[in-house]
Amino acid sequence: MRRDWLQPLALGLASATAGYIAWSGQVLALPAAIAFPALWSMARSHRTASVVSAAYFLVASRGLPQGVAAFYQSDIWPGLILWLAASSGFVFVHAALWSRQSGGWKALRYTIAMVLMALPPFGIVGWAHPITAAGVLFPGWGWAGLAAVAAGLAIMTTRYRPAAAVTLVGFWLWSAAFWTAPDIGRGWQGVDLQLGNSLGRDNSLARHSDLVATLRLRRRPDTAYVLLPESALGFWTPSVERLWRQQLTGTDLNVIAGAAVVDPEGYNNVLVRVSATESEILYRQRMPVPGSMWQPWLAPIGKSGGARADFFANPVVFVGGQRVAPLICYEQLIIWPVLMSMLHDPDLVVAVGNDWWTKGTAIIGIQRASAEAWARLFNKPLVMSFNT
Rank of each mutant, 00 (worst) to 15 (best):
M1Q: 08
M1N: 06
D4F: 11
G12N: 06
A14C: 14
A16D: 07
G19T: 12
W23H: 10
V27Q: 07
L28V: 09
L30A: 10
W40R: 02
S50Y: 02
A54L: 14
Y56P: 09
L58P: 10
P65D: 09
Q66N: 04
G67W: 13
G67E: 15
G79I: 12
I81M: 07
I81Q: 05
L84N: 04
S87I: 09
S88P: 01
S88V: 12
A95R: 11
L97M: 09
S99M: 04
Q101L: 12
Q101S: 12
W105Y: 10
A113V: 03
V115F: 13
M117N: 12
A118Y: 08
P120V: 12
A128P: 02
L137T: 11
L146A: 14
A147R: 01
A148V: 08
A154E: 03
T157L: 09
W172C: 06
A181R: 14
D183H: 10
W188C: 01
D192T: 06
L199D: 06
G200E: 05
N203G: 05
R219P: 00
A224F: 02
L227R: 04
P229L: 07
W244L: 15
R245D: 02
N254Y: 04
V261M: 06
V261F: 00
N269F: 00
V270H: 00
V274T: 12
S279L: 03
R284W: 04
W297T: 13
A307E: 14
A307F: 03
R308M: 03
A309C: 06
A309Q: 02
R323C: 03
V324F: 01
P326F: 01
I335Y: 02
L343M: 15
H344S: 11
P346E: 03
V352G: 06
W357F: 15
G360F: 11
A362D: 14
Q367F: 03
R368T: 13
S370E: 11
W374C: 05
L377H: 11
K380Y: 06
T388N: 10
T388A: 11
